[in-house]
């Protein structure tokens, strides 16, 4: 009898506990949930709906089926935007990560003044996304800009890098590589997690530095490399500010810096073709989701998880 009583009591206590938590959770999560529904989920679905309509803010959206998508796939500027963005992502992200990892490796070797160097290299990551730095870039790579002044000092005649269709995108790639500090800090923290004893054991077994690097550092660092890769890829696909400022909002010269987001902005908020812009937005989502999924599948073959 006492046992049954005890069981009943604990069960009651357990349900009370759970109920109590549930109510508290609802309260604590309320702001987030409202935001998730109103500011994120609803707009996400609305933009899917809008992508099948013709909408310009002035009239009610009219259903046009897949017309926006077919228009998109026969729009040369859309393909140009894809080309620009992919080129930027494929070139700048690996360069940035190599720079970040390289510097992290150099700094990790028990060097004095680590904090100082880390700050210096990290600073550009904080400022890089600002309009002020984009303005600076426009001058530095301009016809009479800093780069050409330095080149002139060595007797080389430069050109207007930002105003030349072959080089304009390159200046933005340089800008992205310049902000390697953030992934570098993550790499540095990752290197610290590699247990020292692995190196000691390897050294006793006669492994040289190169082999230690290849067989200890790299495998243990692959999760961090993967993390940085996913993060930087997603970020690079969304580049907007620098391209907007450096090209004066046009994506020029001759669409050579017409980033995907810039074209989306132009369509949605320049000419108010919001149906078309929504179709572009969903296509961007598919690209990013697809790329991230591929990344995660591929990671099974090269990312090494210790645990």
């Amino acid at each position: 009898m006492a046992v049954i009583h005890e069981v009943a009591r604990t069960r009651r206590a357990a349900t009370e506990h759970r109920k109590g938590d549930g109510r508290a959770a609802a309260l604590f999560l309320a702001p987030w949930f409202v935001g998730l529904v109103l500011i994120t989920a609803f707009p996400l679905l609305a933009s899917l709906y809008l992508s099948f309509t013709d909408y310009s803010l002035l009239r009610a959206p009219g259903w046009v089926g897949i017309e926006n998508y077919t228009a998109m796939f026969s729009d040369p500027r859309f393909f140009q935007a894809l080309k620009v963005t992919f080129t930027y992502v494929i070139v700048s992200v690996p360069l940035q990560l190599v720079a970040a990892l390289g510097l992290a490796l150099v700094l990790d070797k028990g060097l004095k003044g680590l904090a100082f160097y880390r700050s210096i290299y990290y600073l550009p990551s904080l400022l890089g996304a600002s309009v002020a730095i984009a303005i600076l870039w426009r001058q530095v790579f301009g016809a009479d800009g800093l780069i050409n002044q330095v080149l002139a000092f060595f007797g080389i005649e430069g050109q207007g890098w930002v105003s030349h269709p072959d080089y304009a995108l390159g200046t933005l790639i340089v800008l992205n590589v310049w902000t390697f500090g953030a992934p570098m800090v993550i790499f540095l923290a990752g290197l610290r997690q590699v247990p020292t004893m692995y190196y000691e054991a390897a050294a006793i077994d006669g492994a040289g530095r190169l082999r230690q690097f290849r067989n200890i550092t790299v495998p243990l660092l692959t999760p961090i490399i993967f993390f940085n890769l996913v993060l930087q890829l997603i970020g690079a696909f969304q580049t907007f500010t620098q391209a907007y400022i450096v090209s004066g909002g046009t994506g020029g010269p001759v669409d050579s810096t017409l980033f995907y987001t810039l074209y989306l902005y132009e369509k949605g908020f320049g000419s108010f073709e919001m149906g078309y812009a929504s179709a572009m937005a969903w296509f961007l989502l598919l690209i990013i989701a697809g790329m991230t999924a591929v990344n995660f599948v591929a990671s099974k073959y090269w990312v090494f998880y210790d645990d």
Binding site: L38, I39, T40, F42, P43, L44, A46, S47, L50, L57, I234, F237, Q238, F240, T261, L264, Y265, G268, F269, M274, A277, S278, A281, W282, L284, L285, I288, T292
Partner: peptide, 14 residues
């Protein structure tokens, strides 16, 4: 991971 660009148009309308 959701890009702001995907939801900005309906947000603007809202």
């Amino acid at each position: 991971m959701l890009p702001i660009h995907v939801i900005i148009v309906p947000q603007y309308i809202l």
